[in-house]
Design a protein around this nucleic acid. Sequence first.
DNA 1: ATGTCC
Length: 500
Amino acid sequence: MTTTHARTTPPMISTGEATAILPTETTAPIKVIGTEAIRETFDDLCIQQAINSRTAPGVTDVVLNPDAHCGYGAPVGCVMVSPSHVYPGPVGVDIKCSMSLLQLDVPADVIEDRKTRRALIAAICKRTPTGAGKGQRSVPNGRRVNRTLGMQAVIEGASESVCEQLGIPSNWADRCEDSFHVGHDDTRDALASRLDWLTDQRHMTNFSDKMTQLGSYGGGNHFGECEVVEIGDDDRSKSVAETFGLRDGKVAFLSHCGSRGFGHNLASGQFKALQEKFSRWNIPLPAGDRQLVYAPLGSEEANHYLDDMALGANFATVNHLLINALVLEAFQEVIPGTTGDLVYFISHNIARKEIVNNVPSWVHRKGATRAFPGGHHALVGTPFAHTGHPILLPGNPRDGSAVMVADEGAEQSCFSVNHGAGRVLGRKQAKRTLDQSTIDSELEDHDILSNCRFYPKDEAPAAYKDFNEVLASVKKAGLASEVARLKARFVIKDASKADD
DNA sequence: ATGTCC
């Protein structure tokens, strides 16, 4: 269901970060994707952030997705389009936070045994650590990611050389939304010189060491999850699933992570630098919100941001592919002879250069997933030219996650859908109100194992919106169709703060 | 999201 949101009597809000009085007439409506039940989940600050984003300089389109909630400047769960400006805040602190899905040839009954699943959890955790500050442990072929290889990875992304050195199958690069990112001038040289400068500037902050965190999950909402694939009964789902490489009734592995401390350092450095310049040069902040600082394309500031975003994006890309290679290796250790292939790797925190309404623009997806349907010009030459690419949407362990494919209607949302269920309880609120034993026994009832002794309360299914209602919003709006559901069998998350 | 303020 789509509606347009155009407030005539906007609220005044104070967030501590921003105080904004909105103009009484917004310049153009914000497209809102959501059923009535979903629209009730948007709180005032979330709507306010969407309006702030819409009225910010150079912005031509804003879409609010059903999973939207408060973010940094712009809501998490929105799309913001500009042909003339880049906005670091609405890309976010975790540059190129993404989803990836690895399809294995293991039938579901092979992992029915809890001991096998426990062994898989141990084998995966041994290779791909979770938690803040935790770096990579080991890589295939016994090679470690040293600083030199880390630098090559963030400059080149998933190049043939980087993949070869890390034991990443070379054909996986074809299964990426973008397997590498280049600098503001479309060259790698720009990234190399920017990295030199950053390394020199930030040598006191262990900046270079963060590159060795390739192959790790981190914390928060990041996770690895073992799934059983359930392909939809209809002919289209079966046919699209075949193109995607999905295998009904077999095991798959879904991962959610981003650019770790490396991307965080780049993003927060940009926020700080731009906020200082706005202040020094007395430039008005969009809606008075310093989280919405921007840089006009062509400026030195925009060039630096685009270079930093590309470096962070390359980290996230190699990070995901390495994790998938390590997970495959773990499966092979526990279940000898296992084979697997990447289904897709797709981001939900990135700005991409795309054509919107015939205008080349930067499409900022902040907690939003690209959704190009079959026949889209940008998919020509990819395995998904005729079907549209896989859309990977994490839901929750109880209700499952989803693989979708875009429909023609996706054009109305700037070729974007949601990025998951979306938070409905804040972390503090979830920790205060949810009951630990209820969360753990619910997972136990579904026979879902975890590396956590106690599942983090602020990550419990109840802390998120109703995933089926979120998906219904996307389907009813004609944006995308469900191809398969992924049912969790075990979850790997950062357990270090679970008992807060 | 993040060695959760270098």
